[in-house]
Simulated assay, not measured.
Amino acid sequence: MTDTHHLLDIIESTETQSTLTALGDSWLLGFDTETTGAAPGNDAIVSATLVLRNPQTGHEDDTISEWLINPHRHISAGASRVNGFTDSFVQEHGAEPKETLEEISAAIVAAQERNIPLLAYNAPFDVKMLQGDLQRWRCDSGITDALENDRLLVVDPLVIDRAVSHRSGKRTLSATTEYYGVDPYGDFHDATADTIAAVDLVTPMSTLYPQVGHLALGDLMEWQRSAHRTWKESFNRWLESKGRRPIREGWFE
């Protein structure tokens, strides 16, 4: 593992990628969080990981930074069962939120300035959790500005998989990695293991579905928004056929 300053140094030494760079050839900054619960804005991050992936060298050369945070929020029983964290543990071992969140944000913003996408599985959840914490602690950050001005560059393997695989069954991270033959480094629901697994999905996705690997970074956001809209329309028809309420959320729009 590396410290935050080393991660930032490596990002800042990386050349800015072209909008024509293909996803399969792109540097990626993986991101995942474990949280006190599932409500962005009310719940908070207790652990986070960033994984910088060089497409030329792969996992063995990953730059990984991890954070454990005292959220000053109660961890729900359900979240604790999933991620293994307890209030007493994070209060004793976790860092204070403001400085930690600003470190995470600074690394993401530096990557965005170099056209390095932020990759997260079900990305709106993790980004909204981070945004909520940044606002709660009144942190200096360019992420909120990027979101408000439609400038955040994101890769979401969940959205991509829904668009190309047309498979049945669950689309949890563990089920999706199994489908693509990705072996996790560690246990799922650990922020680092989940981040690496999500980043690892890009290569087999690009191999099995070449149109994914050929996606230009400049087209990536609109392609994913369109893919999400198509999936949402289909899923809502199914929900309505079961008498259930349709979903309304868009994907970074």
Rank of each mutant, 00 (worst) to 15 (best):
D126P: 08
R136A: 08
D145K: 09
D200P: 02
A44H: 12
A175S: 15
K170F: 00
V154E: 06
I45Y: 14
W223T: 15
Y180H: 14
E96V: 02
T207I: 14
S141K: 08
P40V: 08
D161M: 10
L29C: 14
T176S: 07
R225F: 02
Q224A: 08
T177F: 06
Q211F: 05
T21P: 03
S226W: 07
V199E: 01
S26P: 01
K170E: 00
A120K: 03
W27C: 03
L201C: 11
A48S: 10
V212W: 11
F89L: 15
A110W: 03
E178R: 15
W231T: 00
F188V: 06
I11T: 11
H59S: 10
R73I: 09
D43T: 04
L220R: 00
D183C: 04
W238T: 07
L28K: 07
Y121N: 09
T207Y: 11
S241P: 00
S165Q: 13
E103C: 04
H72C: 04
H228K: 03
S141N: 13
N236V: 08
S165I: 10
D156S: 09
D187S: 15
G24A: 14
L20R: 02
D62Q: 06
D156T: 10
P55K: 12
S47E: 12
L101S: 07
E99T: 12
A79L: 08
T49E: 10
F31H: 07
L201Q: 10
S168Y: 06
D3T: 05
R237K: 13
W27E: 03
G243C: 13
Q135E: 05
A39E: 15
H189S: 04
D183V: 09
T33E: 01
A95R: 08
V46Q: 01
V46H: 07
M129N: 05
R114T: 06
I160M: 12
L29N: 14
R248P: 01
W67I: 06
A22V: 01
T57L: 15
R162W: 14
E103I: 01
H5W: 05
E253G: 04
R81W: 08
I10A: 08
S241W: 00
L118K: 11
L208E: 11
G84Q: 10
G78E: 15
W223D: 04
H59W: 06
Y180T: 05
S206G: 06
T172E: 07
A79N: 10
P204C: 10
P157G: 04
S13H: 06
C139M: 02
R138C: 04
R81Q: 13
E92W: 08
T36S: 11
A193I: 02
L158H: 07
V212Q: 12
D140E: 11
A123N: 05
A146N: 01
A120T: 06
A198H: 00
G218L: 12
V154M: 03
H6G: 09
P97E: 09
D140Q: 11
